[in-house]
Write a protein that binds this DNA or RNA. Structure first.
Length: 884
DNA sequence: ACCGCCGGGTGCC
DNA sequence: ACCGCCGGGTGCC
């Protein structure tokens, strides 16, 4: 995806209560008075903010005027302040100000006020102003306006200036890209894990961002003053440096490893972190600090740290007497990582992870891991250095500022941080002056109102980093949170972010868009697996070859298949004729799923429960539960027709259409007579039937009466051949039907394959175990993994596999790619061979055609799909599949 | 002069 | 503010 595409996505803002909903309903020139009483200054063309001051002792209508830095400039003249106060207090409109000239005036200056509100408030605002003798106009005569969408002389003049300045910014950016981002840097000697070239580049870039003396984006030095080209703000003092940024590399490029290298390599001015040197003598004393890792999904389910563990902790160097005083520590900068989930930590902590030793593999609710720092050194860091790492986590964490201050690295979770912050009396993390704060999976903090976001923003630090594969998840607003964290002035204040970036971009202003690009590029390093540096692939991955193996059904299978197909065609054909295809969508889907199942294995196909008439409400409910279960277990990767995303909290309507609960509830709420978006039947919230969750399916014939299928035979002959050629080769066997995986288990056992399995029904811990076993190459460990297409989401590392067998085609080609990516990624040493089984002359072949079409569509247009287009597309698909 | 005029004091809200 | 406004001083020319 290109940056502009990404940005185009950003402008689709899902939130509510945003200034973008507002339109400009009028403007007027006012006066700022009392300039001589305040120190705040403004420049020509500079934006100012207007703040109500209801407590002002002289006038309860007072409206204060402040510059971008929040310094008070003056007040709005009282006659004008009176109607403005009413408008602002009653939220009739937002008022924004720009000082067009008179910036050197001593006593008062003009200010161009622009009123923004919802259309419905337009009259109220105009009337209120008129009552006080003011008439809101639409244009300022001959003065400069910021980001006016109208063409006027003044506007052109201003744009000319800013675009000139922008060009400078762009040139700088270009230098940035050419030099800083491709220069490599060797990590400190203490790191003995070899960094890949792109990781060295990231390390160099991060180091330069931390040590740079450059002005923050959009600041320029002009004749002794520092000038912000976007707000026209000038100050004498050099604006605070923004040390840090966003490392937004794709998953799997080694963000965490790079960051660890940064921690060790750039203490101050490119000098490595001074690490204690342990002599051989000391090492033999096994002076070991034991750090406890609790690896759980949710903090609540965490097993408390046992006292014996803690004793161990104390005994091994963190003595109890160091854990007393909570006075803020000024001396010594510290390093600090915030990690979202311990599981992630465990997965991604790069060189640390090898030292995590499983302690209780059988514990169900949580598992504890020990990290022996001594072991760590022996393998990954030079044997004679030590790094003090403290995991600030668990009920009995030591809330000692002193203890924390003495660490090289402190790890904690967002939950712990915000829980400490919530009991604000005692948040040791907020009392330390950190050298560096790193937000791992930083996109999880994106709602600025959430407590954890506030907790993150309050951390004192010299340098700040955000690590995130998806820095912008939904909208531009997410980016605002990141700017606040980085303290990138003035964008850490909502008003300026909205006025300078968010609204212009949302309104389609090109300058705004360019500013956003410059801003993001200036502080972000983002590479994908497909990025090229100087014409070469960033990551040289082994080859990836795709073979389609056509499977011919046996005579018996063909007969069964054809019978079902004919029946299905008849039914679907009649739906088309009646125009009821959408009302009977679930039944259509059922038929298609059945056909696809026949292609895999006849034993998969459930008994036909189809279009029988439900009688009592209970029977109807039962019926609907059956249908939704069918839809969700069909592996068809159904999208919600409202949000066009994967289903979240799926519910089925009485008319048998499946949506996300929040989506359909919103539809019902917003319409008086709510109708199903797909079939226009009336729907009600209380009639929505929920998916009861994963249920034990009627067991497929995996026992005595097991029989094979053409596709299973095809798979087995491939696997046997592979094993014969090279018994160490590992394969992924991917299907959308978990019950197909059940069936495949039988011959795998029969032929003595050691295999493991990963599907969506498995708990997080069992999954982790399955992955771990599969990745382990020592003899006796599984060589085959049965993998459900949708299992686990991205981020799972299955690089042990070099062969992938796609048992059945998916509706969504991206899902297949993603699945293959789990083994075709960083760390894969062999060429990856993908075999797709497609049954000849079947619905599967048609699915492949549709896949290709979809792919083309994605590549061609980045157009927004509308629900009704989707419906149309679905119908086309059904026609194509059934050859109607 | 219950005015006009002068000139000093003063000045956001 | 090289203004406006206020209010005290003043009062034919």
């Amino acid at each position: 995806m290109t940056i502009s595409q990404e940005i185009a996505n950003l402008t689709e803002d899902s939130g509510q209560d945003l200034p973008e909903e507002n339109v400009q309903i009028g403007s007027i020139q006012g006066t700022v008075v009392g300039l001589r009483y305040y120190t705040g200054t403004v420049n020509r063309g500079e934006m100012v903010s207007l703040v109500r001051e209801p407590q002002n002792p002289y006038d309860r209508n007072a409206v204060m005027v402040a510059n971008v830095y929040g310094r008070q400039v003056g007040h709005i003249k009282k006659e004008l302040a009176a109607p403005m106060a009413y408008i602002m207090d009653n939220n009739l409109a937002r008022v924004e100000g720009v000082v067009p000239y008179g910036e050197t005036n001593k006593f008062s200056m003009p200010v161009n006020l622009t009123f923004w509100s919802k259309e419905e408030n337009r009259d109220a605002v105009h009337n209120q102003m008129r009552r006080h003798g003011f008439k809101l106009g639409t244009e300022f005569k001959g003065s400069l306006i910021w980001y006016s969408t109208k063409t006027s002389l003044g506007r052109d003049l201003l744009i000319f200036v800013t675009s000139y300045q922008l060009k400078n910014a762009f040139d700088k950016l270009f230098d940035d890209l050419m030099e800083d981002k491709t220069r490599e840097m060797e990590p400190a000697e203490a790191v003995c894990t070899a960094l890949l070239p792109h990781q060295k580049q990231a390390l160099s870039w991060m180091t330069s961002r931390e040590n740079s003396n450059d002005l923050p984006p959009f600041w320029e030095e002009k004749s002794g003053l520092y000038f912000n080209v976007l707000t026209n703000f000038a100050v004498k003092e050099r604006p605070e440096k923004v040390l840090g940024g966003i490392l937004a590399d794709d998953m799997g490029l080694g963000k965490t490893l790079t960051t660890i290298a940064l921690i060790v390599s750039n203490f101050h001015n490119g000098k490595p972190l001074p690490l204690e040197q342990i002599t051989m003598c000391c090492r033999t004393l096994t002076h070991t600090i034991v750090i406890l890792f609790i690896c759980v999904d949710h903090e609540e389910s965490c097993e408390p740290v046992s006292s014996s563990h803690l004793k161990r902790l104390h005994a091994d160097g963190v003595s109890a007497d160091t854990i007393e005083e909570d006075a803020p520590q000024k001396k010594g900068w510290l390093l600090f990582c915030v990690l979202m989930q311990c599981t992630l930590l465990f997965e991604s902590l790069g060189f640390l992870k090898h030292f995590i030793k499983k302690k209780n593999s059988n514990t169900h609710c949580s598992r504890s891991y020990f990290i022996s720092i001594q072991d760590q050194f022996e393998q990954h860091i030079r044997a004679d250095v030590t790094l003090k790492v403290y995991l600030y986590y668990g009920a009995e964490r030591k809330r000692s500022v002193k203890l924390l201050s003495e660490q090289d690295v402190v790890l904690t979770t967002y939950n712990v941080l915000s829980s400490d912050f919530g009991n604000k009396a005692n948040s040791p993390l907020h009392k330390v002056n950190w050298l560096r704060v790193v937000l791992d999976e930083g996109h999880v903090v994106r709602n600025p109102n959430a407590l954890q976001s506030k907790a993150v923003l309050e951390l004192q630090s010299e340098r700040r980093w955000i690590l995130s594969g998806t820095p912008i998840q939904n909208s531009l607003k997410d980016l605002y949170m990141l700017m606040s964290f980085l303290k990138l002035k003035p964008f850490d204040v909502k008003e300026w972010w909205s006025r300078i970036i968010q609204r212009p971009v949302t309104m389609g202003d090109r300058v705004g868009l360019k500013n956003l690009q410059v801003l993001v590029k200036g502080i972000t390093l983002r590479r994908t697996k497909n990025s090229k540096v100087a014409g070469r692939m960033l990551v040289q991955l082994p080859e990836r070859r795709v073979f389609v193996q056509h499977v011919t059904l046996s005579e018996e299978e063909r007969e069964e298949y054809e019978q079902v197909r004919k029946e299905g065609r008849k039914i679907i054909g009649s739906y088309f004729e009646e125009g009821t295809i959408m009302t009977n969508y679930a039944d259509v889907l059922a038929i298609l799923v059945r056909l696809r199942q026949y292609c895999c294995h006849p034993g998969l196909v459930a008994k036909y429960t189809g279009a029988d008439d439900p009688g009592t409400p209970n029977e109807l409910r039962e019926h609907l539960i059956n249908k939704i279960t069918l839809v969700l277990n069909s592996g068809s990767d159904e999208e919600c027709a409202i949000c066009l995303d994967s289903l979240r909290q799926p519910v089925i309507t009485y008319c048998a259409h499946v949506y996300c609960r929040p989506c359909i509830c919103e539809v019902i709420r917003s319409e008086k007579q709510a109708r199903c978006p797909l079939c226009r039947a009336q729907i009600k919230t209380r009639e929505l039937v929920e998916y009861p969750g994963e249920e034990m399916q009627a067991g497929a014939a995996t026992g005595e009466n097991w029989r094979s299928s053409s596709k299973v035979d095809a798979l087995m002959s491939n696997l046997l051949k592979l094993r014969q050629e090279d018994p160490t080769v590992k394969s992924l066997v991917v299907s959308q039907f978990t019950r197909f995986m059940d069936l495949i288990e039988v011959p795998l056992r029969e032929y003595g394959f050691s295999f493991t399995r990963l599907d969506g029904t498995m708990a997080q811990k069992t999954r982790a175990k399955a992955i771990q076993d599969f990745q382990d190459s020592s003899p006796g460990n599984p060589t085959i993994m049965l993998l459900s297409l949708k299992a686990g989401g991205v981020g799972i590392n299955l690089t042990a596999a070099s062969h992938v067998f796609m048992m059945d085609p998916a509706w969504n080609p991206a899902a297949e790619d993603q699945c293959v990516d789990r083994c075709h990624r960083l760390g894969q040493s062999r060429d990856v061979v993908i075999t797709k089984f497609i049954v000849k002359d079947s619905v599967e072949e048609n699915m492949v055609k549709i896949q290709k079409k979809k792919q083309e569509l994605v590549e061609k247009a980045f157009g927004v799909k509308k629900p009704m287009d989707l419906k149309q597309a679905r119908m086309e698909e059904i026609r194509a599949l059934m050859e109607i």
